[in-house]
Design a protein around this nucleic acid. Sequence first.
RNA 1: GCGCUUGUAGCUCAGCAGGAUAGAGCGACCGCCUCCUAAGCGGUAGGUCAUCGGUUCGAUUCCGAUCAAGCGCACCA
Length: 567
Amino acid sequence: MDFKGQVIQSLQQVLPVEMAPEKLNSLLEIPKSGKLGDLAFPTFILAKEMHQSPVEIAADLAKKIDAAAFEKVQAVGPYLNFFLDEQKFSQQILETILTQQAKFGEQDLGQGGNVPIDMSSPNIAKPMSMGHLRSTVIGNSLAKLLEKVNYQPIKINHLGDWGTQFGKLITAYKLWGSEEEVKKDPINKLLEYYVHFHQVDVKHPELDDQAREWFRKLEDGDPEAMELWKWFRKISLQTFMKVYDRLGVEFDSYNGEAFYNDKMAEIVEILADKGLLHESRGAQIVDLSKYHLNPALIKKTDGATLYITRDLAAAVYRKRTYHFVQSLYVVGSEQTNHFKQLKAVLHEMGADWSDQIHHIPFGLITSGGHKLSTRAGRVILLEKVLDDAVALAQKQIEQKNPGLKHKAEVAKAVGVGAVVFHDLKNNRMDNFDFNLEEVVRFEGETGPYVQYTHARAESILRKSGKNLGELPDQLRISSQINLEAWGIVKKLADFPTMIERAVTEYEPSVIAKYALHLAKAFNQYYAHNRVLNDDAGLNGRLALVEAVAIVLKEALRLLGVKAPDEM
RNA sequence: GCGCUUGUAGCUCAGCAGGAUAGAGCGACCGCCUCCUAAGCGGUAGGUCAUCGGUUCGAUUCCGAUCAAGCGCACCA
């Protein structure tokens, strides 16, 4: 039985009133300070019934309770504090971790169910920005977390590869572009044309007509338009792949908006058949007033489909193809209403799976307090940020550890790790104003801090010259456990719970914060205790170090961050 | 105007279904490398937890109102 169960059982034997185990379970809490114990029972609720002060009740219970199963049980003020048997508990948790290695923390919440994740989704012919980074790294981390608890994630890069902007792009390219220029620097050149278009069309609205015409041609399958579109898509994707490669992110599908071009008619038909489609101001809509939502625009006045039409087709396609148990969309919080509408329309269509759709929103990244805008040319280029971060990491290595092997590789892991970790450290919903120095910081609560801690642990293990994984009998914690080591052990034991929380809240930051806390605990231990002393406690300390290395590495992996053995 | 999100230290943020003196990091100041990587560790300074009410034995946490900020509010995605 687990510790909490033992506490509940012992409490039930001495409580003067009947209390269900579930009730007790919810009442028990973890004391703020480890010095106060490992679990506490507050006695306030008993005060009224027993006509006694909570302090007296706690003292009374402490006298009566059978403390055999615990290190000790102590009344402090109105609390009854329980202390774990540190020896036994430490040995048990360390053994578990060293045996399971990277599998530690795995659980079966998903029973293998498919979970498509709509993520990253950059627009063709536009550079990836920090906003895409958020969607990419949150989606990637959620995929790894879901896999860890036995779901089957399917990472879908829903590319923005269709829409009227291609009419504009083709127009701009025909007017000002050249093949050689684009080949040299694809995305930046295409972006340049696009931005230029928006600067010029303010004074020359006739350009918009040209753009509309080119998009119409594209939809009609005009060879020249199609050729250009395919080319733009191909070279854009090639550029994106370089970024994904650096981030270590892979996708299971690149089916973007264009993929659903031939799948929307069916949706419109279904909506019409069910009598859900109405005309309003010349457009075809689905009324959602009973959901307190704006109507969903299925078709524009000119008959063209819209964003939601495409997403409806995508949702239905994904259900049919993957038979998902959940379908996630890692998309900015500004689109919250869109996804409410999406779910509502699906519900109206009779899709009983509409509540399996979950929008995973995240906060906005601004620059100098302003919203980013590709049109206005106000972007934070992701590639540039990664370049800067890696260059800075390189510099740092030259300074701190010039003799290091595989410098370039480590610099990449640390630089990219800093950027990714920074994005995952805080609650998804937090907005933040972009600040390069903040993002590529290597000290304090950062990815490199966790990586460094892991590298320190690995370094000790290397120097010990032992292979602990093969020596389970010697994991005995023979020396007395000090407060620092005990703090680590308790954190290690929390890992599975943290994973569960991260998954149920769709919140990678739970893992990032956990990794920081564990790293902090280990660094405190490291600063005050020498591991490689040849005494009776050596094996126990090494077991602790290895367990920390395993869990830190695994936590970083779940965030999509590499953990070099040296740095 | 309506809806969603958010208001905790100078800055960036933690505070798991309310509970014991509100915690980190950065920045500031002061310490610690004859010892396993100082990308580290320790200390000092810094808070009416936006405001006002309500529920409760107890509220930073739950509810309501107010104020402030961000985002969204049909033919972009």
